[in-house]
């Protein structure tokens, strides 16, 4: 993007700000009221959407802000799911399970980050994919309390299904709001500036006195903590987890695509990306039961060609070019 375009966008952002806040407020109100008026099918769809908002915001921290393309970030989703699952099978309450999910994921990212975040570009991307795939095998090998290849059944709640699902929906909604707030706050903190400096030029950031390794490891730990939270709630929600479903690489990949659709490094982009992709793929799924993967694949390809910087940017560019033509005429 040219400097002029950035300035223009900045100017526009300040005039647009009240509009954006109004849209966010209305969106939140609608989401808060939604469980009252929708079927259980759409409640499930919306819960999934909000879950992906959290996962995509987590990914935004490491990919969008730090510039490290963690293609296999879904590994922390699985770690969160298994941390919560094993804790609850061991008799701990749900709240403790969720806390453990966040802590375990963040600690794993912290430890793994020291060697792996030294890798750059593609190498880092595929190393995270390898982690994701290896985790499946590790859980199977551990067996014992994780249930191994047989999977793990979580204790059932003594709530009725309907209020339970609504409660879990609000939990996901709270998580989505919190993760978006965390990204917004992070962007204003010194760590956020350090991370963006690393994204733009790691060497320059180091020269400016930033401890790049430490900043990157913190970023990945935050990213993993958010993703782990989503995994923990998800585990309780579906009550039965197995290595192949908890560590499904598609979770990380889907979040990555949502991040591209929404626009990397922005605050609201991941929210928009998650809503667009999940709802479109749900509609495609119900409309074309047999060919839904084919259509989803085509959609991904088209989005990447037409709007590689996110649909908000593509839309803004379209509006700009229309306005410019008006001015010329």
């Amino acid at each position: 993007m040219s400097e002029a375009a950035v300035l223009e966008q900045g100017a526009k952002a300040s005039t647009m700000r009240p509009l954006v806040w109004a849209a966010v407020a209305i969106g939140l109100l609608v989401l808060c009221a939604a469980p009252l008026g929708i079927s259980s099918y759409w409640l499930r769809v919306l819960t999934t959407v909000l879950m992906y908002v959290i996962v995509t915001q987590g990914l935004n921290v490491i990919v969008g802000i730090t510039g490290y393309h963690a293609f296999g970030n879904g590994v922390f989703f699985g770690i969160g799911a298994y941390a919560c699952g094993t804790a609850m099978v061991a008799g701990l309450p749900f709240v403790a399970g969720i806390a453990l999910a966040i802590v375990m994921s963040a600690v794993c990212a912290f430890i793994l980050g020291w060697p792996i975040l030294r890798l750059k570009g593609h190498y880092f991307a595929i190393a995270t994919v390898a982690l994701n795939l290896a985790a499946v095998q590790i859980i199977i090998q551990i067996g014992g309390i994780t249930g191994g290849a047989q999977g793990l059944a979580l204790p059932l709640s003594d709530w009725d299904p309907k209020p339970l699902y609504i409660a879990l929906y609000y939990l996901m909604l709270g998580g989505a709001v919190a993760s978006t707030a965390i990204v917004a706050i992070l962007l204003k903190r010194p760590l956020g500036f350090a991370l963006r400096a690393i994204r733009d030029s790691e060497r320059a950031a180091a020269v400016m006195g930033i401890n790049t390794t430490k900043a990157k490891v913190y970023a990945w730990a935050i990213s993993a903590g958010l993703t782990g939270f989503a995994g923990g709630v998800w585990a309780y929600w579906i009550t039965f987890i197995e290595p192949s479903s908890a560590f499904d690489p598609a979770v990380g990949v889907k979040a990555y695509i949502m991040l591209i659709i929404g626009g990397m490094g922005s605050i609201l982009g991941p929210v928009i990306g998650a809503f667009v992709l999940e709802i479109v793929s749900t509609l495609v799924w119900s409309g074309f039961l047999k060919a839904h993967q084919l259509i989803l694949g085509l959609l991904i390809v088209v989005v990447c060609i037409v709007a590689p910087n996110g649909i908000i940017n593509a839309f803004a560019r379209l509006v700009r070019s229309v306005r410019r033509n008006d001015g010329a005429a």
Partner: peptide, 15 residues
Amino acid sequence: SLLLSLVVTFGIELV
């Protein structure tokens, strides 16, 4: 963007 190719080829694989 080179990393975009990861996503595009993932889509092609699905198709």
